[in-house]
Design a protein around this nucleic acid. Structure first.
Length: 582
DNA sequence: GATATAACTTAGTAGTATTGCT
DNA sequence: AGCAATACTACTAAGTTATATC
């Protein structure tokens, strides 16, 4: 059960008139308490926090066009500064970025400015850039006291805007700050990179709150776009973003009850898949032989999703986003078939960009039947044609939900991730290991999942250097250990010196421990070079597996979960015993 | 049936804070 | 104490899925 203190709420008269806080033991009330689709009964908050308005540049900082000072109006100047701030970044050298920026910037100019400024290459942002860098430096150089003042001011904002009351519980809001304006930075070759992301005004924002709650006050002189009371959704505020035209939402923090219960539910669906996955696997192996092309494509796609933990792969509008794919949207050009590769038969070589333009590269031996089907699917097609031309995510998910209520493509990722962690932990960890070794095993199990899900990161810039530093530290410690050992040996020969003997013994032991720790650290770091563990830990691994492992292995939970992770997984910490099996 | 939209989860990165070593 | 390494947080883009609309 979520054991969270109930903190008295704001000054609002409506809020305090609600029923008293329910007991912490009442967590189970939430799910079944409400009729279908209702997410809450009471919701009160202060509305989102807006970033400060733009202030003109100081008089001595100038923008130059064609070598001459040009004093820009407020709107054009603000956008110029966005570009100037990014001058060190590779983005600003890309044609797409520059063109998009320039086009949108000109829209913000006055007629006069627009007539004058017609070529980005004649723009000199250097002084603005320098000013920005100085500001960054000044911020870094702030004294401890100044930093503390800043921190306290921030905490005040969090205290004021960062919480809401949802059904008698004071909950942390995830993103209560309106996204400030700036230049859009997509990932990879995004066709919209560099476009202006406009400033959001209260007039753009829809507020969602309880009927009986206080309505948040808009900033002075402004009004909300709309105030609604929709308790079938979980967001507190929303607005439409201008670059992609999509909706942005203010929602609760992962530590909230609402999110926690949803998370729990997700893993319960994955566990239900576990109990029937054998049947489903048999079924799609059968379907691969179907006379229906549609069925065969669906079966092969499902085989990939299950075996390789691929994402579903929705269609995307061409030219609106970077060209990335998932399983259903794979094209012929993304796979290569090898009858024989590196001593293995029927190998499929995948090479495509997935979510966030992360490359997926894998060489996978498949069954003869899958291989034959793929050959067929690719026959008479161009490289740019869809591999599964009779299939999309909608069709696939419809089929999946008929096999098991709640089953969708992404459940396979959750299920395979969690089951892999459980199996790996089982295989890798021993009760007799020391704490450092146990943690290494945990990380390796986590890593196996991250590899499966293709969670990558760019190696830190300082990676090689810090690796070398660690290695030299290890070498140093090795020498020290050798020295300590020989001293001990010497002392043992002189039998009389008993007291100093044990002292030396301890020194050797300490040295050995430190060396071992450093070596494990080096191994762990090397194996982690390009792998990101966070995403799987946060989104794919049933936390109960980890909690149970900690209990079994006698490892404190805070060795594997930090504070916010423990908060997010509070539901699992409370309910899980050492005997939990996913 | 195709397409658009709404709502929500999943994702990597950049910047900040903390830790731990010499 | 000062610095580098590490840990953590904030941010917001980019997916998935269900549902609404044409």
């Amino acid at each position: 059960m979520l054991n969270r203190p109930h903190i008295p709420q704001s000054t609002c008269k409506h809020a305090s008139s609600g029923p008293p806080a329910s007991s912490p033991a009442a967590a189970s009330e939430t799910k079944d308490k409400y009729e279908d689709g209702v997410k809450w009964k009471f919701l009160e908050h202060r509305g989102p926090f807006f970033p400060p308005e733009y202030q003109h540049l100081p008089d001595n900082v100038n923008f130059y066009y064609n070598g001459k000072v040009v004093k820009l109006g407020l709107a054009a100047e603000e956008v110029a500064l966005f570009f100037a701030q990014m001058l060190d970044h590779e983005y600003t050298t890309k044609d797409v970025f520059r063109n998009n920026f320039f086009k949108d910037w000109r829209k913000e100019m006055t007629l006069e400015e627009r007539v004058l400024i017609s070529d980005l290459n004649k723009c000199d942002f250097q002084e603005l850039h320098t000013m920005h860098k100085e500001k960054v430096e000044a911020r870094k150089a702030m004294s401890k006291e100044e930093k503390l003042v800043m921190k306290e001011a921030n905490q005040k904002i969090v205290e004021e805007y960062g919480f809401c009351i949802l059904d008698h519980h004071r909950e942390r809001i995830g993103n209560f700050k309106i996204e400030p304006p700036g230049l859009f930075r997509g990932r990879g070759e995004h066709p919209k990179q560099g476009m202006l992301k406009k400033r959001i005004q209260p007039e753009d924002v829809i507020i969602n709150c309880g009927k009986k709650s206080c309505i948040p006050e808009p900033p002075a002189g402004h009004h909300w776009k709309e105030v609604r009371h929709d308790n079938t959704v979980t967001w507190l505020a929303s607005w439409t973003e201008n670059v992609q035209g999509s909706c942005k939402y203010v929602m609760l923090n992962p530590s909230s009850k609402l999110k926690g219960e949803k998370d729990w539910e997700k893993y319960e669906v994955a566990r239900r898949l576990k109990s029937c996955v054998n049947g489903i696997r048999q079924q799609y192996q059968q379907d691969i032989k179907s006379k229906q092309m549609e069925t065969r494509q669906r079966a092969v796609a499902l085989y990939f999703i299950d075996k390789l933990a691929l994402r579903a792969g929705n269609e995307k509008e061409e030219g609106e986003t970077a060209d990335t794919v998932g399983c259903c949207s794979l094209r012929v050009e993304h796979i290569t078939l090898h009858d024989l590769l590196e001593d293995k038969e029927c190998v499929v070589e995948f090479d495509f960009l997935g979510k966030d333009c992360i490359r997926y590269y894998n060489k996978v031996p498949v069954t003869k039947r899958v291989f034959k089907n793929l050959t067929l699917f690719m026959k008479n097609k161009e490289p740019g044609d869809d591999l599964f031309d009779r299939l999309n995510t909608c069709l696939l998910n419809k089929h999946l939900s008929s096999l098991l209520p709640g089953l969708t493509a992404k459940v396979f990722r959750t299920f395979n991730a969690s089951i892999t962690l459980q199996e790996q932990l089982q295989q890798l960890s021993n009760m007799t290991d020391n704490p450092t070794e146990k943690l290494l095993s945990y990380n390796r199990a986590n890593r196996a999942v991250a590899v499966l899900c293709n969670h990558q990161r760019v190696p830190p810039k300082t990676f090689d250097q810090s690796m070398a530093n660690l290695q030299s530290k290890i070498d140093g410690r090795r020498e020290q250990l050798a020295l300590a050992k020989s001293e001990l040996k010497l002392a043992k020969k002189e039998v009389k010196a008993h007291s100093s003997d044990s002292k030396l013994q301890k020194a050797v032991q300490r040295c050995e421990e430190q060396l071992m720790k450093m070596e494990v650290q080096a191994t762990n770091r090397e194996e982690n070079k390009q792998i990101a563990l966070g995403t799987s830990k946060l989104n794919y691994l049933d936390p109960r597996i980890s909690v149970a492992w900690c209990k079994n292995m006698e490892v404190p939970l805070d060795k594997i979960y930090n504070k916010s992770q423990r908060d997010k997984f509070a539901w699992a910490v409370d309910m899980t015993g050492a005997d939990f099996i996913f």
